[in-house]
Design a protein around this nucleic acid. Sequence first.
DNA 1: GAAAATTCGGGTAATTAGGGTC
DNA 2: TCTGTCCTAATTACCCGAATTT
Lengths: 224, 224
Amino acid sequence: MSTPRHHAVEDAEVWLGVQEASDMLGVSPATLRRWSAAGKVRAFTTPGGHRRYAESTIRQLLGRAAGLDSSVSALGESVDRAAWALHEQLAPVCGSLSWVPRATPEERQILGLAGRSMVQGLLGYVDGRNDHECESAIRPAIEAAAMQGRIAARHHGDLGETLETFHRVRGALVDDLAARACLAGLDTPRATRLLARANDGVDRLIVALVDAHAAAPAAAVSPG
Amino acid sequence: MSTPRHHAVEDAEVWLGVQEASDMLGVSPATLRRWSAAGKVRAFTTPGGHRRYAESTIRQLLGRAAGLDSSVSALGESVDRAAWALHEQLAPVCGSLSWVPRATPEERQILGLAGRSMVQGLLGYVDGRNDHECESAIRPAIEAAAMQGRIAARHHGDLGETLETFHRVRGALVDDLAARACLAGLDTPRATRLLARANDGVDRLIVALVDAHAAAPAAAVSPG
DNA sequence: GAAAATTCGGGTAATTAGGGTC
DNA sequence: TCTGTCCTAATTACCCGAATTT
């Protein structure tokens, strides 16, 4: 019977010294030191003042240029199916916006397409393996968000209400990704990176929507 | 011999040998030994002189953290200090908003206070152990967000630009929490829950800001 | 009781931090 | 503005034989 203490440490993080980390990044140790001093790269500081960098942190920095290792498809489900499921969940929420009943049937159809496009683009953005793939995926989603913003403005949609809807979208997407990440056994760095990217994507859609909403300041309909 | 110390409580603490502990910290056993000799790291010493380290002690060193629950304070740093650091990082971003130079000195001072209040409230919201604590923490932050929205509206601030700033706040907060979670060894479910809560908090501030912005539709300024 | 693995302690070489400058 | 290179003081890593733990 083995003694119960000293359990093997399960998720041991690999720590790198400044030299190793800066070699990986291709910068000088002084630069990496400045980065951590500025809060750009997180590091564990020993009581003596020396820094230790988590290998996952460094890989994350590299990942912006090289392959991203946290993706939806790596989570086991195809992007298409995930998008479909998410859209099914979100469509009623979006449809309950107070200004939607004022939209024409054609506009409502467009809104449905836009919603699907946004969900699809968002997941594609999260799933992309490099910047180019991410941008290609989200571009139509951004256009769809702008379209939704213009239609909302046309019908005097309340911006706060629309934002809340988007926040629900964000919540659902993040919850969904988090659940998939847990199921897939993704480790904490990868999972949090995934969620951060999802956030970025949603933020970009929101900005596009708000800008479009403001730029197309409504047609004069139903003037009181 | 049986395990020397199971004092009554049994599942309380996991003890690590020097090798395991130093692996977790990314330093050599000799260094860890020197730290305990200097009183920097508390260790239990066997009658023969060997040291045993509590896993929680090691985690405290890593993120200044003992990752037991998903909260900022459990992540080791006091909310106040984390808020201060985050605000330091974000203040220049918020100050670069195009409409800020049009604000009066007094307003700018108020904006600074509001920014600090929002960061503090946000972290308190994430850190809260129950609904009541969360709500108490975020309420002043919501009021601060509304205040910022009113000031922005007064100076014809661009809503999209303000939103982008908030999205940067979200990004910084999420990055910060994610990094802390990784350092503290938080598992994926806890870490994702933490980030989801942070998102919720930011969303509520954004809604408050946008609503206030819309409700206080600007004064006629800049007679130029 | 005995053996293998680990830890202790110390002494020295290598690496790092930090500031200042280009 | 940012990065790479110097400099010195401080910290850390590697070496050893002896003692402890398993």
